[in-house]
Design a protein around this nucleic acid. Structure first.
Lengths: 231, 231
DNA sequence: ATCAATTATTGTCATAAGTACAATTAATAA
DNA sequence: TTATTAATTGTACTTATGACAATAATTGAT
């Protein structure tokens, strides 16, 4: 026997919002879309939409992202859930935010569906967004910064082959600090990187060596103890 | 103009689940209730229930917790959201889990509403639970362990005045490792603790000094740099 | 009162990590 | 060839970590 009439409760909707982070020109950027529909028509927003009644959340996030921006095959991670009763003007909609880290240069984005435009915007230059999307984006960036300190996810943002300087500048931008080159290199010496013969090109000074992250070795090492990415 | 008929989407419900952690007898425990209603009648479960259509999520978590266990005035933190379409046998219900850390000895719990019984169960001795509550509880415990390493939340679990041994044993239990007493004391020397004259009582050996955490000093210190609680 | 038992607390020493800063190296462009 | 730029390595000092030993304070038994 049930204690209440369930049907009263089944009157809500939920959505997913996708925060896509990328890194280029020494800046961490988020992918935004310009809405061509009400509410918040013509506002910039994070790609997101309602979830179908029988759809699983991670799938919904992937679908919505693909429909609006053409991005697919990106690994989504859950972030926070926002459920203020007044956050959506048209009814009770709680939203579950997901985030992904991608290499800007290997993915191509293209506005579609009700997204009129897409744009990569540096995380510290975000304009006023639709709904509570500024709040969602900021919280998720905080989460990213936390994860940057505890997991090797920086390599999802960096190109497959990167210079140590690019690596360092990613942390410098995320935490808005300056770091000593020599000391940065010492700190990362426990991270399994592969040094390649190949060098940086088209620079007007001594070219830097290119490195890549060896995930296999990392996973073996981190099985035993814990790892830190506090730079 | 809207692109779809919104009403199709407004047919879901959501719930909150409350993971309450406590610490006693050198063990981290979770508060469980025994269900006296279907579905999963007579199963142990995490306290949780449906959210009213106009209710904010943190408020819902506090209300539900109070209704089922009598606990109130505990600070709730959001954990993960679980939305598998089949997770609830009666319809699409996504659940947002919240967690709180309390001092077992200063709160009194009492089963009420459709909770038939309440019990503090050590986190490593959890039985089979209703719904996907084992999964929810495990994920949230993982989150707790992460936070234990980065924030001074252990003091929400410890009594207001605690011995350094109790402090150490909390970490030892959480991470299932043994630690060296002398080295533990060195590591925590950056944590602002107040040493009291008062000593441990009713022990048949040399009584330990009692300490308490100085949050004010901690907040001042951590404004500048970052803090770590890696023990 | 003395002593064994038990746990709290402090100390030592070798090794690793972190920090500030200096020196050296390898490329480009004039 | 040389100035310029940034990459890369080195040095010296301080601080943290980890294994282990030594000392201190209490209770309960003799």
């Amino acid at each position: 026997m049930y204690r209440i009439d369930f049907s009263d409760f089944f009157s809500s909707a939920f959505s997913v919002d996708c925060i896509i982070f990328g890194y280029s020109e020494d800046k961490i950027k988020a992918l935004l879309i310009k809405r061509s529909v009400k509410p918040f028509e013509n506002y910039w927003a994070v790609p997101g939409d309602l979830v179908y009644p029988d759809e699983d959340l991670p799938q919904a996030a992937e679908r919505v992202l693909y429909e609006l921006t053409g991005l697919k095959n990106v690994e989504m991670h859950q972030s926070e859930t926002f459920g203020n009763p007044n956050r959506h003007p048209e009814g009770r909609v709680i939203t579950i935010s997901y985030f992904a880290l991608i290499r800007i240069e290997v993915f191509e984005v293209k506005a579609s569906s009700w997204a009129e435009e897409v744009s990569w915007v540096p995380i510290f230059d975000i304009p006023q967004l639709a709904f509570d999307h500024n709040h969602i984006l900021n919280s998720t960036f905080d989460l990213l910064c936390q994860k940057l300190q505890n997991e090797p996810i920086c390599f999802d943002l960096l190109p497959e082959r990167f210079t140590l300087n690019e690596f360092q500048k990613l942390y410098e931008y995320a935490f808005q600090v300056e770091m000593d080159k020599a000391n940065f290199r010492k700190k990362i010496k426990s991270v399994p990187l592969v040094a390649h013969e190949e060098k940086q090109k088209n620079v007007k000074h001594r070219p830097a060596k290119l490195f890549s992250f060896n995930k296999t070795t990392f996973d073996k090492l981190s099985e035993l103890g814990d790892c830190r990415f506090k730079m």
